[in-house]
């Protein structure tokens, strides 16, 4: 199947996600038949088979999703969503912060900046359930965690503070940044669950 991967480009780590998906598609042999592009309007979104919501500042991204009339179109989007860091915050049903307008696409409660400020940001080799090839080198930057996950979600990894990776059907949410490195196993896994 031809893949059209959109990366939500309102603010944040957009170009790294585009590069990571391009690399993942190339490694899975879909490089020639696929496209990866920025999503900035509802019209761009209508063109996508799957969407990535990158890391950045969740309050800013939430505000710009609303301003750009993307809130309902993302909620109604039929494809899978690959959500990292700020993206994970936005996927939740509950965020203990009135500045965030969560999309409510995954039944979970998210705690922003759960590990503390930038000096508490860290790297760790993280084992993920079902991921072949050993643990994943995960980069956590002012990262959120999931403190409650509903029964519809599959937990893939957790740390002491809470859950840091989970799936729901074609959606995947991660506290950390798989795009800041050249290990594309999680991007590839997401493409497979989306039939690509």
């Amino acid at each position: 199947m031809d893949a059209k991967i959109g990366v939500l480009a309102v603010q944040g780590n957009v170009s790294e996600h585009i590069d990571a998906f391009l690399l993942a598609l190339e490694r899975t042999g879909h490089g020639a038949s696929s496209e990866v592009f920025e999503v900035r309007s509802p019209a761009d979104l209508a063109d996508c088979t799957a969407l990535s919501i990158p890391g950045g500042e969740s309050t800013t991204i939430s505000r710009l999703i609303d301003k750009n009339d993307l809130y309902e179109p993302i909620r109604q989007f039929k494809g899978g969503i690959f959500a990292t860091c700020a993206g994970m915050v936005l996927m939740a049903t509950e965020v203990a912060d009135s500045r965030i307008h969560p999309l409510g696409l995954m039944d979970m409660t998210v705690d922003r900046n759960a590990f503390g400020r930038q000096c508490e940001s860290f790297e760790i080799d993280l084992p993920l359930a079902g991921l072949e090839g050993g643990s994943f080198h995960a980069v956590f930057i002012r990262a959120p965690v999931v403190t409650r996950a509903g029964p519809s979600l599959t937990v893939l990894a957790r740390l002491q503070k809470g859950i840091v990776a989970l799936e729901k059907g074609r959606h995947m949410a991660l506290s950390f940044h798989p795009e800041l490195g050249d290990d594309t196993r999680l991007h590839e896994h997401f493409l497979r669950t989306n039939g690509i």
């Binding site: 480009a9 309102v10 603010q11 944040g12 780590n13 957009v14 170009s15 790294e16 890391g55 950045g56 500042e57 800013t60 860091c85 700020a86 930038q118 000096c119 508490e120 940001s121 860290f122 790297e123 760790i124 080799d125 980069v139 930057i141 002012r142 940044h177 800041l180 490195g181």
Partner: peptide
């Protein structure tokens, strides 16, 4: 002891999250 703090990747990664802002 498995955690690493204050690395170059974490510093540049933080800066990268500010893009478009």
């Amino acid at each position: 002891e498995e955690l690493r703090f204050g690395t170059e990747l974490l510093k540049r990664g933080f800066a990268s999250m500010q893009k478009g802002g």
